[in-house]
Design a binder for these strands. Sequence first.
DNA 1: TTACAGGTAAACCGATCTGTCTACTTCATG
DNA 2: CATGAAGTAGACAGATCGGTTTACCTGTAA
Lengths: 184, 184
Amino acid sequence: MSKPDLLIHTAFKLFYEHGIHAVGINTILSETGVAKKTLYRHFGSKEALVEAVLIYRDQIFMDWLTSRMLAAGEGKVAILALFDALDDWFHDRVDVLLPFKGCFFIKANGEFSNHAVNALCQKHKQNITSFIQANLIDCSSELSVAELAQSISVLKEGAISQAYVAGDLDAAKRAKAMAVTLLD
Amino acid sequence: MSKPDLLIHTAFKLFYEHGIHAVGINTILSETGVAKKTLYRHFGSKEALVEAVLIYRDQIFMDWLTSRMLAAGEGKVAILALFDALDDWFHDRVDVLLPFKGCFFIKANGEFSNHAVNALCQKHKQNITSFIQANLIDCSSELSVAELAQSISVLKEGAISQAYVAGDLDAAKRAKAMAVTLLD
DNA sequence: TTACAGGTAAACCGATCTGTCTACTTCATG
DNA sequence: CATGAAGTAGACAGATCGGTTTACCTGTAA
């Protein structure tokens, strides 16, 4: 693995577990064994590294989620596969996402205000909602697909928060059941 | 307002907006005009202040939410009032909660790991779910009231996150609609 | 009046933070 | 062989962090 990739991967792991402000540059350096000058050559600042980590996680998560949904099929089937995927995530059956510790973007968003980080987090959420919406175009419903996609997103966000903060690891199953009735 | 209350109130405002680790003790002191020694007489450490702030916010939030639900009535009516209350919160129509910046407990929980803060955040969420459950005891449903309360909690958590991170301020209305069908 | 609790102001401490700098090494490529 | 990019190691700088300490002030109650 290249030095930048190693730094991003390790930084994510530490940020995800302990929070961004709680993890210093020196911790990332000692964890990776990379020299400080190397880090600052590739990333001009800690903030630049944080943004790279957000982009990295967005790619990992979106690739995983979209492949899970596409593998299941189209339309309603794909939406239900989303909640099955979440259930696997909550129960640590998805190696590529690392052990479940909530949504990294919700956490990161909460540590900043009026910052580039917030924009990246919002964009990540919009990307997911857009993909959900794309899977709903041929779904029969009296609601507009845009609003339906946002309702599905509410269920998805609720499952993640409920699973993490309250420790309700079966939250995705509950969300799925509500999604079923919503899509009928 | 007493010095401890002033410190807690100001600390909450700053923590809520910028995050806990991002706000230093000195910022709270200069904002309040209180001497550092006074802060450390009442709170032995920053961590103690943080815990006091969490307890403070828990009381404010629970008092507001329970009064809104009790004022509406009992059973299903109270549950629907919960989502109307959230809608008011998201649109900054609730002075006592300060301008909406997401759920303080989700944010705080994300900044710590295996810490007293996490336990307090989880307890806050459990308190709300328990109160929801208490309003469901006479609700006709094939589901157990405990699981039904957790499903309602998923909708509530989802509305908050969706409103804050994605900026979907009407998320409470969507959650309410799903709650209606869930309770039928 | 005296004693004391609660408060301010500000210096101070050691630790840690992000970020820079110098000196040396390694290695691939022209 | 020479050159230059990419790397390590680690000292260093300046700021800020949480927290302690000293000196002084103020109001209240015995």
